[in-house]
């Protein structure tokens, strides 16, 4: 049983197709990188898989069942820039939002939820900032709060949209440690990633995406110069860099 199976997914914004016939299968208990240039449709892919935007065609199966958000097996870390950080709330409150699916309608988070949320903040090294207004956190700290919120969802599969963008080196290390920990617990983690230099270090499996899936599979066999060529087109500066990155063999 695969955690995620996507078949023939097509998504369009105002008739302009952004993803075309995307199909892939995600192996269980692995760290998976979703790689592609800006505008390749990486965020769109995550949102369509999670049912946040409508699909034109296609099917998404999570553990062999058609995916419905209510099943609460999937956690989500959006791009940090997707929310207004001036919103009147503190770090703990944001993490508690991860519990809302478990709490149910009309009820308020209880003591247990708060303990769990504090626990999640601790896992990302943010326990001292629980009552800090979110606009007063640094970019890296905000990203950690988003991660803690996803942990609070207590899911089996995690989707994270560019968690490493705009964070300091310490946060990047903390995040990758956390991802490996999740993997150790048998969870499946899909991460949209930008920095090609770290792909080989971070991920077991990659999906190269640019409107279509260019290639997918274990990082070793898939993250090749030829496939990167196809994914990124003929950006020369990049290709020179790509030679250094991928062409070690």
């Amino acid at each position: 049983m695969n955690p995620v199976e996507v078949q023939n997914l097509t998504v369009a914004y105002q008739k302009k197709p952004v993803l075309k016939n995307v199909s892939f299968t995600v192996p269980e208990g692995k760290l998976i990188g979703i790689i592609g240039p800006n505008g390749a449709g990486k965020s769109t892919l995550i949102k369509a898989v999670l049912g946040m935007i409508p699909k034109a065609t296609g099917e998404v199966r999570v553990y062999d069942k058609l995916y419905r958000a209510k099943e609460r097996v999937v956690g989500y870390v959006p791009q940090r820039g997707s929310v207004d950080w001036d919103f009147p709330t503190n770090a703990l409150d944001v993490v508690l939002m991860g519990r809302y699916g478990h709490i149910g309608w009309f009820k308020r988070p209880g003591k247990k939820d708060k303990e769990l949320a504090l626990n999640c903040l601790e896992k990302v090294g943010m326990q001292e900032y629980a009552t800090r207004q979110i606009s007063q956190l640094s970019g890296g700290q905000q990203q950690r709060v988003f991660l803690a919120r996803a942990l609070a969802q207590d899911a089996k599969i995690y989707f994270m949209d560019e968690p490493f963008v705009g964070v300091d080196a310490a946060t990047e290390r903390a995040i990758i440690e956390l991802l490996n920990e999740l993997k150790q617990q048998g969870k499946t983690v899909l991460v949209v990633h930008h920095d090609l230099q770290t792909v080989k270090d971070y991920f077991d499996h990659v999906i190269l995406l640019n409107i279509n899936v260019i290639a997918e599979g274990p990082t070793e066999d898939t993250f090749t110069l030829k496939n990167l060529h196809q994914t990124y087109g003929g950006t020369l500066a990049f290709l020179e860099k790509g030679d250094i990155l991928v062409g070690q063999k």
Binding site: K47, M52, A69, Y76, P78, T89, M97, Y100, F106
Partner: peptide, 20 residues
């Protein structure tokens, strides 16, 4: 009554949708 739901809907509508 809807305070919690309206809060997450306002702060992060996509996450709210992800919660089901």
């Amino acid at each position: 009554l809807l305070f919690k739901e309206l809060k997450v809907l306002t702060f992060d509508p996509e996450f709210a949708k992800g919660l089901g």
